[in-house]
Structures are given as structure tokens and as C-alpha cells.
């Protein structure tokens, strides 16, 4: 079974701020990591392969040349191969263009059973790319998966997390599956894995390699435009309630009374 994992390189912390004087993003010393949700996707892909006793896991990322690091880490965790999609023409892609570009790579890789990715990326938080990819490929999708109960070459039975609990869904394959944290606990890379990652040759595919329609990639291919970026107003300064526990609790209860009653 061929399993593809889509990963994104993101800043390690979301604690980025805009410098009010220069109006630039303060990003000094911010490390890049694999999107935390994609780590669960990598782990799940490797587990599916291990359980089925064979197959191939390929990690795919779209990004600048430095996203190669993220792909090496994916290999160190057990992915067999990796591909980087990188081209200046991809710059300015929104989720529409990104999911199109990824789907072109998936078509090129071909003959896959499952496409796994995190439910969303921790920098943009859109949760749009997974469903976007399934739509471009015209295959089924299941989002927010917390457990893959069973999987074979033709179908899978999974648990999909919802606001109230979860759903049990059976889907035909190939399909796109996006996963939540509960699904597993990602392993640490093994020494052997790290060695393999170091040596791995990771091809870089451009828009031309992917036979992209130029009107569907990068800024041209992106229907949305960011017109303003700003820091949200800081929260109003808080108030410390001090005194004996009984008195403080009563004071707080009184302060919250109106909201509690109307809720």
C-alpha cells in the first residue's frame, strides 16, 4: 500500500508579534518545525505500513528550499521517501492554490491508497488544505480522524471526532484523511532513521514538473488576498481579587452573577 503524507513546515511558536514601531513580524530566533498535527499523520502512516507488513510511505511538502529539513525529519521518523514542491511560482499561494499544487504532486506520484495530513497547520489554522486536496483529486475524505479502526487496500473504517463525540465512518479508498492529536503518540526518530534521513536524496519538483496550470498556482491561482495585517488590541488589564477565600469567592460570584444568570 502506498501512503502519502502531506506536511508543512511552520514556526515553532505561534508567539509571533508585530513590532509596533517598524510594523514587521518579529521572528528572530524562531525555529521551524513540522506542523504538530502533521507529526500525528506521519506516525499514523508509518504505523499503517508496519501493521500491514509492507508498503511505502512518502512525505510531500510544498514550501521554500528550507522545508527540506522537515522532510528529512519525516524520513527519520520512518517515511521511506520524500518530495519537496518548491518554485518561486508557488509564492503567494492561498489554500486553493496550495491544495491544487499538492494534488498535482499526488497525481504524479500515483497509485496511492491513502493521503494523510494533520487536521490543520498551527500557523494558518484553516483546515482547508486537506479537503481541498481531496476535491481536486475527486476522492473521498474523512476529516478529524481520532482512530483508524481498520484499513485495507480498498476501504477503511475510522472514528471521526465531532463537537459532541465521534462518528464511525467507512470510506472507500483512495481517500484523504486528516487526523487529530488523539490518534497516536509520534515516535522519536531512531538513530538509524536519522542516518537514513541524512543520506536521503529528496527531489525538488517545480511547477513545470507537476504540469501545473499556471493560472491555478501562486498568487495568480489564489482567489483570496490579504489586505491588512495587524496586532489584536491587548486585553484590558486584569484585576486581582485578594482576601479570605470565602470573601474572595463571594466577590467573584457577584461579579460574574449577571453573565451566569443570562447564560
Amino acid at each position: 500500500m502506498k501512503i502519502l503524507v502531506l506536511i508543512k513546515q511552520v514556526p515553532e511558536t505561534t508567539d509571533v508579534k508585530i513590532d509596533p514601531e517598524t510594523n514587521t513580524l518579529k521572528r528572530e530566533g524562531v525555529k521551524s518545525i513540522i506542523n504538530p498535527f502533521d507529526m500525528y499523520a506521519i506516525e499514523e502512516a508509518v504505523r499503517i505500513k508496519e501493521r500491514s507488513g509492507g508498503g511505502q510511505v512518502i512525505a510531500v511538502s510544498m514550501g521554500p528550499p528550507q522545508a527540506m529539513e522537515a522532510l528529512r525529519e519525516a524520513i527519520s521518523m520512518g517515511c521511506d521517501e520524500a518530495v519537496l514542491l518548491s518554485d518561486k511560482k508557488f509564492a503567494g499561494s492561498d489554500t486553493w492554490a496550495t491544495s491544487y499544487t499538492l494534488s498535482q504532486a499526488i497525481r504524479k506520484l500515483g497509485d496511492y491508497s491513502v493521503v494523510l495530513c494533520g487536521k490543520q497547520a498551527s500557523d494558518g489554522d484553516t483546515a482547508q488544505v486537506g479537503p481541498g486536496v481531496s476535491t481536486h483529486l475527486d476522492i473521498p475524505q474523512v476529516t478529524y480522524i481520532k482512530k483508524i479502526e481498520q484499513i485495507n487496500a480498498e476501504s477503511a473504517r475510522v472514528e471521526r471526532m465531532t463537537e459532541e463525540g465521534y462518528e464511525i465512518i467507512e470510506t472507500a479508498l483512495p481517500a484523504v484523511m486528516t487526523v487529530v492529536k488523539e490518534i497516536n503518540e509520534p515516535r522519536l526518530p531512531s538513530l538509524k532513521g536519522k542516518m537514513r534521513a541524512k543520506k536521503a536524496e529528496i527531489p525538488v519538483w517545480t511547477a513545470e514538473d507537476l504540469l501545473c496550470d499556471e493560472e491555478k498556482i501562486g498568487l495568480d491561482g489564489s482567489p483570496t488576498r490579504v489586505i491588512k495585517v495587524f496586532t489584536p488590541p491587548p486585553r484590558q488589564g486584569g484585576r486581582v481579587l485578594a482576601g479570605e477565600p470565602e470573601a474572595v469567592s463571594k466577590e467573584l460570584a457577584d461579579l460574574l452573577k449577571d453573565v451566569v444568570i443570562s447564560s
Binding site: 514556526p11 505561534t14 508567539d15 509571533v16 508579534k17 508585530i18 513580524l25 498551527s122 500557523d123 489554522d125 490579504v226 489586505i227 491588512k228 495585517v229 495587524f230 496586532t231 489584536p232
Partner: peptide
């Protein structure tokens, strides 16, 4: 970025 930045 987890609410640290707003975009329109």
C-alpha cells in the same frame, strides 16, 4: 499564528 496576529 494562534491569534497573535490578525489579518483582513
Amino acid at each position: 499564528f494562534g491569534g497573535n496576529i490578525m489579518a483582513t
